[in-house]
């Protein structure tokens, strides 16, 4: 029992969330396993992005959002009063739908997180250079960008920008990477590159990805959660969910009868 719960990375218990009067999440209980890729699927407005944004409490910057229930990340309830949002977001990074590199150089984008989480002068120049190289190698950008580290990140191609957004998280050694439709702004090539990258990151990080693309969920994820109207309908290993859905609503959705 102990060893099994250690393998769980994110657990929610009776998670409810309201935007003003509208209830976006209804008693959501999910267990995301450590080191795997878990995809959240469901039709638009089913609450999957909302759920994703709960995991690093980024929903809270809107004052009309109310949350009830419990979210445990690595065994700690992130709504406990002694949880520091800064430390939480350092461990739980997010990749957004549209690549959003900060409009500074590629190099500075990658060391940005390190700079804000450490006192001035903790890192030597060569240490930073090493970290930048390592992060870029990890996301497969090093070969393309090693001579262009000083260019503005916003001038890169979209696919490179999105990879950079992922690389930006890595120096902080996050436990969880949340991805909110990371490929929806990319073309086929870019999508494949990001998917390959996810595959390479698998095992080192727990990845939760929201996607509208069922083929993508099927290709990339180990486990799959289907949501509908703010509720979790089904959670299973991806091949089981797609081949033998237990709930008829899941079956209808993956067969494309609504979406």
């Amino acid at each position: 029992m102990q060893s099994e719960s250690m393998q769980l990375c994110i657990q929610t218990r009776n998670l409810n969330l309201w935007y003003g009067q509208f209830q976006a999440l209804k008693d959501v209980n999910i267990d995301v396993r450590h080191g795997l890729i878990t995809s959240l699927i469901g039709p638009s407005g089913c609450g999957k992005t909302t759920l994703l944004r709960c995991f690093n409490r980024i929903n809270e910057r809107f004052s009309y959002v109310r949350t009830k229930g419990e979210i445990k990340v690595l065994g700690k309830n992130i709504y406990d009063p002694d949880v520091s949002l800064i430390e939480l977001r350092k461990s739980v990074g997010m990749v957004f739908q549209r690549p959003n590199p900060v409009p500074i150089s590629v190099y500075e984008n990658i060391v940005f997180g390190l700079r804000i989480h450490n006192r001035f002068g903790v890192f030597q120049k060569n240490q930073l250079d090493e970290i930048v190289e390592k992060s870029l190698i990890e996301v497969g950008l090093w070969k393309d960008l090693k001579d262009r580290l000083k260019v503005k990140a916003t001038s890169l191609q979209l696919e490179q920008q999105q990879k950079l957004c992922i690389a930006r998280l890595l120096p902080l050694k996050p436990e969880v990477i949340l991805m909110d439709e990371p490929c929806s702004a990319l073309d086929v090539e870019g999508t494949r590159a990001i998917e390959d990258l996810m595959y390479n990151l698998r095992g080192h990080y727990t990845i939760v990805i929201v996607t509208h693309n069922m083929a993508q969920a099927r290709r990339t994820s180990d486990e799959c959660i289907f949501m509908l109207l703010g509720e979790k309908i089904e959670h299973d290993r991806t091949e089981n969910l797609f081949l033998n859905p237990r709930d008829p609503r899941t079956a209808e959705y993956i067969e494309g009868r609504y979406g």
Partner: peptide
């Protein structure tokens, strides 16, 4: 790596965080 830290103190404020908050 994940289980090296006691879950109860996870995401706790470090000295540096306290300084930043100040």
């Amino acid at each position: 790596m994940a289980d090296a830290i006691d879950p109860a103190t996870r995401f706790a404020k470090t000295d540096f965080v306290i300084r930043k908050e100040r």
